[in-house]
Amino acid sequence: MGSEWMPWGERDAAAWIAVPTATDDKYSRGVLGIVTGSAEYPGAGVLGVEGAARTGVGMIRYLGDATDLVLARRPEVVTLPGRVQAWLIGSGTDSSDLGLLGTLFSDALASDEPVVADGGALELVAAAPRAGVMVTPHYRELSRMLGAIGEKVSAETIATTPSVWAARAADALRVTVLLKGSTTFIAEPLGARIAVTGAPPWTATAGSGDVLGGVLGALVATHADNVFESGVLARIAASASVLHGVAATLASRGGPLVALDIAEAVPDAVRRMLELRPR
Rank of each mutant, 00 (worst) to 15 (best):
G2M: 08
G2S: 15
S3C: 06
W5E: 09
W5V: 03
W5S: 08
R11C: 13
D12H: 04
A13L: 08
W16N: 00
A22I: 02
A22R: 06
A22C: 02
D24T: 00
K26C: 02
S28E: 05
G30Y: 13
V31T: 14
G33V: 10
V35S: 12
T36R: 07
S38D: 07
A39G: 10
E40P: 00
A44D: 06
G45I: 11
E50C: 01
A52Y: 12
A53S: 03
G56S: 00
G58V: 06
Y62I: 05
D65F: 00
T67I: 14
T67R: 15
D68P: 00
L69E: 15
V70Y: 05
P75D: 13
P75F: 05
V77T: 15
R83N: 03
R83Q: 11
V84S: 11
V84H: 11
V84C: 12
Q85Y: 03
W87I: 09
D94I: 01
D94E: 11
S95Q: 11
S96H: 04
G99W: 14
L100S: 03
F105M: 13
A108E: 15
L109H: 14
A110H: 13
A110D: 15
P114M: 05
V115Q: 14
G119D: 06
A121L: 05
V125C: 12
A126C: 07
A127L: 09
A128C: 02
A128W: 03
P129W: 08
R130H: 14
G132S: 14
G132C: 09
M134S: 06
T136S: 13
P137G: 04
P137E: 10
R140K: 10
R144N: 07
I149R: 10
E151Q: 08
K152N: 12
V153K: 02
S154A: 04
A159P: 02
A159L: 10
T160G: 09
V164K: 14
V164L: 15
W165M: 12
A170Q: 06
L173Y: 03
R174W: 06
V177G: 10
T184R: 08
E188G: 14
L190A: 12
A192C: 06
A195P: 00
A195C: 08
A199P: 01
P200M: 14
T203A: 15
A204Q: 13
S208V: 06
G209F: 09
G213Q: 08
L219I: 08
T222L: 00
H223L: 05
N226T: 09
V227A: 02
V227M: 00
F228W: 06
S230T: 09
V232M: 02
L233V: 08
A234D: 09
R235N: 05
I236F: 00
A237Y: 01
V242C: 06
V246I: 15
A248L: 12
A248W: 12
G254D: 14
P256C: 02
L257A: 05
A259T: 04
A259Y: 11
L260M: 04
I262G: 01
E264K: 10
A269T: 09
L274P: 03
E275A: 15
P278R: 13
